[in-house]
Design a protein around this nucleic acid. Structure first.
Length: 464
RNA sequence: GGCGGCGUGGCCGAGUGGCUCAGGCGAGGGUCUGCAAAACCCUUCACAGCGGUUCGAUUCCGCUCGCCGCCUCCA
């Protein structure tokens, strides 16, 4: 049974879903004002792995992740580029899906946009005003944090200490520095929606409350996001929901940052790497493997060396896959009984489940995969095809449960490469090694790697 | 100031009160191969510092040093 570290208690707790075998999951998605960076990619991957693992285990996962498509930063971006905020949001939402698709992240079951929920947000804010949890002031409507008992649950701080540490200016007509905007009145030229308090737009913290409750219902199982969202964003979401009598999320989980030289990667620090660039230039699986090898609650560095490291490691996965494919082809063509339906190694799969169930210990799960790869190769080397494919199949099964698949060399060898391979086979048969080596170089120049075995050329695949 | 976290071998990065102290990458040596590649085997290796608890600590406690995050928008 899956247990996860819960932010509210600071302890690991077993996930007890509302409906057995089903997880309702809400993940805070991106504000689409720029291309996504590696930190956003990690976020998408962490919850993709959670979801895939649960689905692999037979659960049904209702996964909601929002798109914040109206926000001060989007408006600012639009202003500086002479476009409408809606054009800006659409462009970067496209970039978001394109990048996460390349990462192999499953699309959420629902991905609501903030602008689709403005009416509902106005309704929620109205109820907060009516129940005196919110107040109108110049500039908009504000939420009164001290009106909610237990404010600070996620921050693990009392309202007093939050108030004294607040770094925000106390102007803005706020009654308390911790209070936050529910509704921002529009300045001239800004996009706006009608409301009882005047035309304006919702504050950021309200959309997730409305959308999660609408799509998942109260008491949904798990609310998740980056550690920076813990406070104030999630605290404020919870405060609104609780103020209106909701239980809100049952469990809370937060993942750590991608860092650069020990510092948080962020737009404001200017030290970010674009996710879009990464998935264009590198094997997207390398980034997934890196996120798997670091625990989700630990910070991780993503350097070019780390990407190269992970890419090389993936080579082990791919090369075993080719080796087993070859074996299966041989077995199939000889219609022999050998290793046709390879059985999983159930002991290994049990260990895998234990690791994953223990707060998603993907580092150990990944280590297990690579250990199995080594053992599978060793078995194959010793001629034990049955054990080799059993272990290898288990490794691939686990990798799949974490969203990692061997690269399939689907594309056929192009004719010019095929011709060179034929020439090389002839040269080798004639023991003309110099000619053979020259041909291998030419083939490599065309982007293909040749691997020979005792009986001749065993494998040709695209170089990486 | 409050709250939270980090400091592991050449590098990345797990984990644990003692047992052969993950895994990947790298380096060196082997096996295999015409040579390579791939694969396997072997070697290399650590727990920031100082105290304390303990039969025994990298793992627990305290302190020191260094670093980071949140308390403002942020995955």
């Amino acid at each position: 049974m899956l247990s996860l570290h819960d932010t509210t208690t600071g302890e690991r707790a077993e996930i007890e879903p509302r409906v057995s075998g089903e997880l309702s999951l809400y993940v805070c998605g991106p504000t689409v004002y720029d291309v996504p960076h590696l930190g956003h990619g990690r976020s998408a991957l962490v919850y993709d792995v959670l979801r895939r693992y649960l689905e692999w285990s037979g659960w049904r996962v209702e996964h909601v992740s929002n798109i914040t498509d109206i926000d001060d930063k989007i408006i600012a971006r639009a202003a500086e580029s002479g476009r409408s905020p809606f054009e800006v949001a659409a462009e970067y939402e496209d970039a978001w899906w394109a990048a996460t698709d390349r990462l192999g992240v499953l699309r959420p079951t629902h991905s609501p946009r903030a602008t689709e929920y403005v009416e509902e947000m106005v309704g929620l804010i109205s109820r907060l005003v009516e129940s005196s949890h919110a107040y109108q002031a110049p500039g908009g409507v504000w939420f009164s944090c001290e009106s909610v008992p237990g404010y600070g649950l996620l921050a693990h701080q009392s309202l007093d200490s939050l108030r004294s540490g607040a770094r925000v200016e106390v102007d803005e007509a706020k009654r308390s520095p911790v209070d936050f905007a529910l509704w921002k009145l529009a300045k001239p030229g800004e996009p706006s929606w009608p409301s009882p308090w005047g035309d304006g737009r919702p504050g950021w913290h309200t959309e997730c409350v409305v959308m999660s409750l609408d799509l998942l219902g109260d008491g949904f199982d798990l609310h998740a996001g980056g550690i920076d969202l813990k406070f104030p964003h999630h605290e404020n979401e919870r405060a609104q929901a609780v103020a209106l009598g909701n239980r809100f999320a049952h469990h809370w989980m937060h993942h750590a940052f991608v860092e650069v030289g020990g510092e948080k990667m962020s737009k404001s620090l200017g030290n970010y790497l674009s996710l879009t660039d990464l998935v264009d230039k590198e094997d997207p699986r390398a980034f997934r493997l890196l996120t798997l090898r670091a625990h989700y609650r630990s910070p991780m560095e993503v350097t070019p060396a780390a990407i190269a490291d992970a890419t090389d490691a993936l080579g082990r996965l791919d090369s075993l896959a080719r080796r087993l494919d070859r074996l299966a082809t041989i077995a199939a063509s000889s219609s022999g009984p050998a290793s046709r339906s390879a059985q999983h190694d159930s002991d290994a799969l049990d260990r895998f489940r234990n690791f994953m169930d223990a707060d998603l210990d993907t580092p150990r799960a990944t280590a297990l995969v690579f250990d199995l790869i080594r053992r599978a190769n060793a078995s194959l080397d010793s001629g034990d095809a049955g054990t080799g494919s059993r272990l290898g199949t288990a490794a691939f099964e686990m990798a799949k449960a974490m969203g990692l698949s061997p690269a399939v060399d689907g594309d056929e060898v192009p004719p010019e490469v095929g011709a060179l391979l034929d020439q090389r086979a002839a040269a080798r048969a004639a023991r003309e090694w110099a000619a053979s080596d020259a041909l291998r170089s030419r083939i490599a120049g065309l982007g293909w790697t040749v691997e020979d075995g005792p009986g001749g050329t065993q494998n040709v695949h695209p170089s990486r």
